[in-house]
Simulated assay, not measured.
Amino acid sequence: MGTGEIRSHINVVYRCTYHVVWCPKYRRKVIVGDVDTRLQQIIREACAERDAPIVELETMPDHVHLLVSCDPQYGIHRLVKGVKGRSSRLLRQELPSLKSRMPMLWTNSYFVATVGGATLEVIKEYVENQRNV
């Protein structure tokens, strides 16, 4: 799925793609090996359950990049909260060494930015020129 695909759900038509980045607590480099493999699987499952198509997913030892489309009625905050909560719980259950090292897997914070096909200047000009049409 590209970032430009228009989607619809009941009473809303949208094209909302977000770039989300989050880190393990204390920016520890724990996203390696089995943790990395299982984390990506959990993220894909959680997003699929919420009909939030993943455009791109990349993990680094100390952070995660997720490019995802999300229904605005559900909200990106709820999606990220669900993904982080589920992945922390499952990873710490399945990999006891991770649980003993980190009582909490993720920091409370994350970065999110919208991704679109047009620049802010182009959209601003479009809105300003609507009265002239």
Rank of each mutant, 00 (worst) to 15 (best):
T17Q: 00
P24N: 09
T17C: 15
D36R: 14
K29C: 14
G82S: 14
T17S: 12
T107N: 14
G33R: 09
R131N: 06
R27G: 06
K29H: 08
R86D: 02
K81I: 02
G85N: 02
V112W: 03
A52I: 03
F111Q: 06
P61K: 07
I43D: 09
R131Y: 12
A118T: 06
L120G: 06
F111W: 14
M104E: 10
I123M: 13
R15F: 00
F111H: 12
C47D: 05
I123D: 14
E128T: 08
V30E: 04
S97A: 11
L79T: 01
T114H: 01
N132I: 15
P53F: 02
K99N: 10
P72D: 14
P103A: 13
I42E: 03
V35N: 03
V112S: 10
S8E: 12
Y110C: 13
V127M: 13
D34I: 11
A48I: 01
V64C: 10
P96R: 06
G4D: 13
S69T: 15
F111R: 04
I10G: 00
T17I: 03
E5R: 14
W22F: 15
T37Q: 13
M102K: 00
M102E: 01
P24M: 01
I10N: 14
Y18W: 11
L57S: 09
L66I: 10
E49D: 15
P103F: 04
L105T: 01
I10T: 11
Y18D: 01
K81Q: 13
G4R: 11
G4S: 14
K25G: 03
W106K: 07
D51L: 08
Y126L: 07
L66W: 09
R28H: 11
G85C: 07
M104W: 11
A52Q: 07
I10P: 00
R15W: 03
V30I: 13
R7L: 13
P53V: 03
I10R: 14
T119I: 05
W106F: 11
E94C: 07
I43G: 04
D62Y: 05
L91G: 03
T37C: 02
R7H: 11
H77V: 15
T37Y: 05
E94I: 00
E128G: 02
R78G: 02
V133F: 09
D62F: 09
N11Y: 04
L67D: 06
R27D: 07
V127A: 08
E94M: 01
L105P: 05
